[in-house]
């Protein structure tokens, strides 16, 4: 990657805000269906979960709380970007 692009992506990350959609019981806990995290927003899935649990301790009482990025379950070390579709996924119960 050319040096110029690295510089650009650094600025981009520092300005990054995130939009997180909430489903099921996580929406009840947070009290809204979409939450906007202003810059500097969490850079990874793990940081997002940590931040959310700090703001909303009841999230930590759930059986599980996963994060989805662009419709896939994401690991804690996955980086987050403004353009990503991010959602909190409480324990699913289809069927």
């Amino acid at each position: 990657m050319p040096a110029g692009n690295r510089g650009l992506s650094k600025i981009y990350v520092e300005d990054m805000s995130l939009k997180v959609t909430l489903y099921g019981i996580t929406r009840d806990i947070v009290g809204t269906s979409v939450i906007e995290l202003p810059a500097p927003a969490p850079a990874t899935v793990g940081e997002l979960l940590e931040e959310m649990r700090k703001q909303y301790p009841a999230l930590g009482e759930l059986r599980s709380c996963a994060v989805a990025v662009n419709h896939e379950y994401a690991d804690n070390d996955q980086p987050l970007h403004t353009v990503d579709e991010i959602a909190l996924i409480p324990p699913v119960a289809g069927g």
């Binding site: 099921g24 009840d28 379950y73 409480p90 699913v92 119960a93 289809g94 069927g95």
Partner: peptide, 21 residues
């Protein structure tokens, strides 16, 4: 039932509850 993002809220006489939460 393990992975598909669908949630179920049961309604009882005296309230509701998210299943498996």
């Amino acid at each position: 039932k393990q992975v598909v993002t669908i949630w179920k809220r049961e309604e009882y006489e005296d309230g509701t509850e998210w299943v498996a939460a």
